[in-house]
Amino acid sequence: MVDKTASLSEAVSTHLNDGDTVALEGFGHLVPVAAAHEIIRQRFSGLTLARMSCDVIVDQLLGAGCLQGLISSFVANSSAGSLYELRRRVEHCDPEPLWFDEYSHGGMVARYQAGAAKLPFQPIASYRGSDLAKKNPRIRTVDDPYGGPSIHVVPALNPDLTIVHAQRADSQGNVQAWGMLGIQTEAAFAGRRLVVTVEEIVDEDIVRSDPNRTIIPAHIVDAVVPVPRGSHPHAVQGCYDRDDEFSRAWSTLAREASAVSAWLEENIHGTADHEEFLSRIGLDRFDRLSIRDTFSTPVNYGGRV
């Protein structure tokens, strides 16, 4: 058994390089926010970010000068407003243009699925009649070899590094998650390297007691990092709720580029790690994000007597 636990700073510095394509996936909750902040803290540059659903970390990575490109299918601060740093780059090339490779959610899923299966591309039927296929030259049309109508295809997505967040893992890197899942498993298998941040590291026996919750097996994980509250301001099912107040405040703050720079300098570059960042924004806010226990029905896996 190989212990793959690492600190967040060690995992990011070891497995990410300037110029890489990095996927930060998690849909609605389980978003690897602490990892994004560590990328900023270590001042990486020239990165291309793959993320289905953009949010505050996209604005923050852009404001920190980490990104040269974005691969995505949704660009808004959830229900909290706009991402003004992203808008400045896309609408006004301010301070410079951003390469933006746009797909639908289905297109992003298909790209990760192809990458995970080590296929060159994936067919997708939902682009029939869509203008998006006309706007993005990477969405191609091929003949159906079985005689049907032609079909659109999207290229495989194989990030240099994938980072996902989950509720728990053992020290070997068997990762378990529950609640609303996105494309984490496919993105994990598609990545050339994989770092997983988790709310807690648990004993192997806990993982073995409920194996169907394992969404990522240890053999593809390069590092597993315990980062409690590592998804804030997003939720983690069973741990804490979404911090809508923070996200709404970000949309107000980010209207001015200078305010974004000042916030990053104080709260990310001015902190040593995620724990200090949380202390800076106020740990008392997690009292307001606390949740009640709601347990699922026990499952009897059975076994020999």
Rank of each mutant, 00 (worst) to 15 (best):
V2P: 08
I183N: 07
V109T: 12
V196L: 04
T185E: 12
Y146G: 02
T185V: 05
G182M: 09
G270R: 08
L61R: 02
W99L: 15
G69I: 03
H152C: 05
R87E: 13
I206E: 15
S45E: 13
I124V: 15
E275P: 00
P97E: 12
L62V: 09
I215E: 00
Q176S: 14
K118L: 11
L283I: 03
I206H: 06
H234T: 04
Q172L: 03
A254C: 15
A116S: 11
R304I: 14
R138Y: 09
F27G: 00
A169N: 10
L194N: 02
Q237W: 12
Y240M: 09
P123N: 08
S296D: 10
T252S: 14
V154L: 11
T214M: 07
R192T: 07
P226I: 00
Q167P: 00
V2S: 14
Q113L: 13
N77T: 12
L119E: 15
V236W: 01
E10L: 10
G302P: 04
E275W: 06
F121Y: 15
L194M: 04
G191N: 05
V198W: 01
R280S: 14
A218G: 11
I71Q: 03
E275K: 10
A254I: 02
K135S: 10
L98H: 02
I291S: 02
R304M: 12
I206F: 08
H92Q: 11
N17M: 09
D143N: 10
H274G: 03
V12L: 10
V236A: 11
F286D: 07
I40L: 11
S231R: 04
H274V: 01
K134I: 00
W250E: 03
E25Y: 09
G147H: 11
P217D: 06
N158Y: 00
V12D: 03
L181Y: 05
Y103W: 10
G148P: 10
L132W: 02
S150I: 00
T141Q: 09
I39T: 12
R255C: 11
V22Q: 01
L157C: 11
Y240K: 05
V299K: 08
E276F: 02
T14A: 13
M1G: 11
C239H: 07
R88A: 14
R285K: 09
G230A: 03
D101A: 04
I71P: 01
H29A: 13
Q184T: 08
H165G: 01
D293Y: 06
G115F: 07
A166G: 13
D222E: 08
P155K: 02
S296W: 04
A156N: 06
F246S: 06
L8G: 11
H105E: 15
A272F: 05
V224P: 00
V142C: 05
V260D: 06
E276N: 02
L194Q: 02
D273T: 13
D287W: 01
S79G: 01
E91N: 10
